[in-house]
Nucleic acid binder design. Structure first.
Lengths: 209, 209
DNA sequence: ATACCTGTGTGATTAATATCACTGTTTTCA
DNA sequence: TGAAAACAGTGATATTAATCACACAGGTAT
């Protein structure tokens, strides 16, 4: 992890801050499918995503996982940035979708940097705000629309992050949406009929804008 | 608005900050039912709730209002605190449930205070985090549970904020939950049968813990 | 008191989604 | 290569919630 890479990924930060990050961050590699952070786990450090794609989930009591949003390289896990000094635990499950590299920065630096680097708190604040807005959009989707629109919204988000060729099964989609495979299959079929996409085995090709 | 009142409502802030707030905040009175902030409205100031109870809603395209959470006296509208310098607009509708008093602080102070007062950014951060967690709980309710549990969760939140005797109609509840009056009526009836509550005209008496 | 408005109760119907039961097809791997 | 596992399609049924169509009760205004 060097300063230049960091600068490219997080262009809004200040010079001295890059040095501090490099000096105090610990690089961690996570394999695709592995969890970076589990529900209930104590948060000891803030995580910056250096590489890869991370999916965030909300879990219910039976362990069902409901997808809430993605984190890209250049983003941070908002929740991990605002944990006060106390031992806060995670409310969400973060899973690497692809192999990923994250930089873990011990929480004690958060307070320091907040006061010291204007660019840091701006980063934290905008980061938080963006996640907040994604949550609101997620709420819109489940509160106001049916499975058909939710599926469409979901697919668009995936396409945005991973490209038009989605390597995903109907079952996985159903899990993310807390629906069932059959329902997803049928809805996909309808979308295929409308030429929005093409269904392949274990993958979907998105055609629409 | 004087320093002592402020101290009581926002006990975690610093001395110099109270003075700044008193000097720069503008008190605004809002009647019950009025909107403090509409969707799309440009945010020019951060709002601290001094008195009363505020309900936050998400709106869909047809103007349907979905309740997301309450703001009490002593809390702040998180979204209004993190608007950068740009002209950000509101993503939510904030409505006074009771007559309310809010303190509006022009946005330009946010940046200053963030750097200057540690207690301020801690206030902002914890405030944000708390709202975030409420959103997550709201998502749980709609993603994982049916109307019956959602209604129960909703009523409990109202009771927490306004006491056991809820002055609310079935229609209003249905609007908040984006459901319909008939459904709410029927579910309430079932809860009454289980002795969780008593239904009166235009009000509900909550009996359970 | 009469009419009217608001709030509530209830059956019937419809729509959306979940679940069940089973088939077939592709991929994996022993 | 053959069997098992993973993935997908589909009809039937069940469940949940929304909608429709009323009836009725309790306040309010004239």
């Amino acid at each position: 992890m060097n300063k230049d890479q960091l600068k490219k990924l997080f262009p809004t930060l200040e010079d001295g801050l890059y040095d501090e990050i490099v000096n105090n961050g610990v690089v961690r590699h996570v394999k695709a499918g592995e969890a970076l952070l589990r529900v209930g786990q104590t948060i000891r450090s803030t995580m910056l995503i250096l590489d890869g794609l991370v999916k965030l989930y909300r879990e219910d009591d039976d362990g069902k996982e409901f997808f809430i949003y993605h984190l890209d390289a250049g983003q941070a896990c908002s929740l991990s940035m605002v944990c006060g000094a106390k031992h806060e635990t995670s409310e969400v499950l973060a899973k690497a979708l692809t192999d990923a590299t994250v930089l873990a920065i011990p929480l004690e630096f958060m307070d320091q940097w907040m006061g010291k680097y204007k660019s840091w708190y701006q980063f934290v604040i905008t980061s938080y705000r963006n996640r907040f807005e994604e949550l609101l959009k997620t709420i819109d989707a489940i509160a106001f629309t049916g499975m058909d629109e939710r599926l469409e919204y979901y697919l668009k988000k995936q396409v945005e992050k991973t490209g038009q060729h989605l390597k995903i099964t109907h079952q996985e989609i159903a899990n993310d949406l807390n629906s069932s495979r059959e329902v997803v299959s049928r809805l996909l079929k309808k979308m295929e009929a409308k030429a929005w996409l093409v269904i392949h085995r274990s993958s979907i090709e998105w055609l629409r804008k």
